[in-house]
Simulated assay, not measured.
Amino acid sequence: MEALLTSAALVALAEMGDKTQLLAMLLATRFRKPVPIILGIFAATVANHFLAALVGHSIAGVLTQTWFRYAVAASFIAMAAWTLIPDTFDEDAPLKAPTKAGVFVTTLVAFFLVEMGDKTQVATVALGARFDSLIAVTMGTTLGMMVANVPAVLFGEALAKKVPMRALQVGAALLFLGLGLWMLADLQGWFG
């Protein structure tokens, strides 16, 4: 349960103001079909984050040395800094739904590709390395993405005007920093 809840909270907060959230808003305003957009985001996230968690989980199983645990803790601290850098998205980039593919496939492909190398994908790799349950991490990170992106699809324009994105980014950064520092303290034996 800890893996699921931690993963969901970290990704939901890290996603605030992220380029994939901006993409969700853009898709919603361009296509005005929330159901296929939400389903496309869900499918892309499950696929992308399962692979990312699998990479993290596989690396953790092979590299059990202390230095690797320090590297995972450092990655969370680096994520804290990265979260403070606001993402931008080119709203003028062409996003026309191909006639045969439709809004779902357009969203699926665009979201999967934009998520590659994104901070939430990197966080998912780190979470996969940190926790033993690949499924719980994937479910948690997917839940976090949906918590952040479904409102962006449904209420994108109004939400962008009302929610202080900078405060959410700072909150996410503090959460990543806290997790990284907690892991370092645990490695030092400060918790007994």
Rank of each mutant, 00 (worst) to 15 (best):
A81Q: 11
L177D: 03
A14E: 04
L174Y: 04
G144V: 12
I135V: 15
P34A: 13
E157G: 01
A126T: 09
G117V: 15
F68G: 00
Y70A: 14
A60C: 04
L154Q: 10
V105N: 08
V72A: 10
V125S: 05
V35I: 14
E15R: 09
G189V: 02
Q121T: 09
A52V: 02
L27C: 09
P86E: 11
E2V: 13
M25I: 15
F42P: 01
E157D: 10
L5P: 00
T83F: 04
G117R: 11
L23P: 01
L175N: 00
D132W: 11
K162G: 00
F76S: 07
K162L: 13
G192P: 00
L187S: 10
A185F: 11
W190C: 02
R130C: 09
F50A: 13
R69I: 02
V109H: 03
M16D: 02
R69H: 13
T120H: 09
M165V: 15
A60Q: 03
A53S: 13
Y70W: 15
E91T: 07
V137T: 12
W67R: 12
Y70V: 13
G140E: 05
L184Y: 08
L174S: 01
P151K: 12
E91F: 08
A148E: 04
L184R: 00
D87W: 00
A71C: 09
T45Q: 13
L184V: 14
G117E: 11
L177H: 05
G117W: 10
S58Q: 15
L184A: 10
H57Y: 08
I77S: 11
A160Y: 07
L143E: 04
I77H: 06
A110M: 09
L181Y: 02
G102W: 00
L127H: 07
L179P: 00
V122D: 04
A12F: 14
W190H: 05
A47H: 04
A44K: 14
G178T: 08
G56C: 05
R32M: 12
L51P: 08
A52Y: 01
